[in-house]
Design a protein around this nucleic acid. Sequence first.
DNA 1: GCCGTTTTCGGCCCGACTGTTTTCAGTCG
Length: 574
Amino acid sequence: MTIHNREIAAIFEELADLLEVEGANRFRVRAYREASRVIGGMSEELADLVESGADLTELPNIGEAIAKKIQTIVETGSLPQLTEVEGRTPASLSEMMKLEGLGPKRVKALHERLGIDTLDDLRAAVEAHKVRQLEGFGQKTEETIRERLERWQGQERRTRLFDAEEIADPLVRFLEAIDGVEQVMVAGSYRRRRETVGDLDILVTCRRDTPVMDRFVAYPEVSELVSKGETRSTVHLRSGMQVDLRLVPEASYGAALHYFTGSKAHNIAVRRLGVKQGLKINEYGVFRDDKRVAGRTEEQVYASVDLPFIPPELREDRGEIEAAREGKLPQLVKLEDIRGDLHAHTKESDGHDSLRAMADAAAGRGYEYLAITDHSRRVTIAHGLDEKRLAKQIEAIDRLNEDLDGRIAILKGVEVDILDDGSLDLPDAILRRLDLRVCSVHYKLNLPKARQTERVLRAMENPLFNILAHPSGRLLEERDPYELDLEQILEAAAERGCFLEVNAQPSRLDLTDSACKMAKEMGVKVVISTDAHGTRNLAFMRFGIGQARRGWLEAADVVNTRPLPELRKLLQRG
DNA sequence: GCCGTTTTCGGCCCGACTGTTTTCAGTCG
């Protein structure tokens, strides 16, 4: 049973939590947290690296000690040091720290003074009014804990980027409508285009004496006021989303935007560069000897540490600072680079709109081409097409293309299922008549890794295989990815001239950002597709672009930035 | 525990808000 990166990351996270409660050296605690973050963001499995004998200390923030611990975890499935710490300090305290407002010090006090080890213990102590009697706690703190215990869902939930947009857009409009407000910008992971966001960080500049904070906390969607100050307030909305609003002076806008866009790790790395040059960087600007030397724009902030502007999507401390220093930042792919969509459905299978409507909508977006790729027969629930119906659709598309008269080219395609044995769900004879074949796994998601990988590899052996759709099968916040050896798949794709899809559906965003980067490094091109099930879904392209940008992809790495003749060549494998 | 275009030892980002204090610790981002 191989152990996954997220499990290894969780072990270091718990170790950090428990050591922090014990009052261990905070830099040591930070080192474990940093290691956990790096591991969580990797697309290559550590287990595979260990097996191949790779030097783990090459990884950022992984030194001798942690490398050795990783090896132990991979080989034995657990970490003796953690077991030892758990012997002194209950593991459940780590869970308690996840409750908002409870940090290491308070958890330690609750544990030592009241014997509280679990959330249930805590609930009982709060009901008995024991917590308020503790030194450093009071009636108000106890009340806050009680409320948050009631709301506690057991796990922090993140919101998909699409849903976050639905929440942010009206709030931004509300703020912009306040007389005196000048700029409103959503920063944080939202601006970095992460696939999910934990909360919204909103930055506002305004004229003097504008009652922004008062108006903000009175926003009708607010369900709880967490804190309200002159420059910063925090609320919870009825949607469950937490929103932080920061009011910043114009002269600090760039510094504040940089700071609140994060990521935290990126900011720390930039500040370190500043420290080396005798600069202090905070959300108000860049300071030398208390004198502001930059801050109005983000470009200025980067320039102060001799770096070019780094796009928000790259700011994860995953090598972007080194790349920037060496002048090797990628020219990230942009929405305008996209010339067409290569995965879309119509009413023939499970789409909502007609062939004609989809064509018109794609043309309306200025595309050169649109591939129609309805499901194949195996996907009965989506009314998948058999040979006969697909043949009819081919004819319909031929007629439509004549009708469209070059306004946009409609490509004949299919989303054909990869069956259990690695064969494709439709005969080669009909597949050959198409312009492209998008291939996907929809059933038997739970095969063991080796068999699942073998299944896809076998499918790729068919020379008609063009694109592997939504390669991991994961659904954000709903379904884990299925077991697949991505490295093997990428190797085969590179060899055979197949492409991998970045599915832009907000609930998929599959490939992940780190997998995109891995594909690029292995010389595999991707296709960014919306998998649209209706004309409106074509707009999902922006999420795919965000994901690809987070994966360091440039226009040249993305197949559907190519003009049609070039695309056609790429679809003839090899 | 990690890391090095000042360093293999001695540093390690920085500020706002709250509650419980009477000058600040804890938490968060």
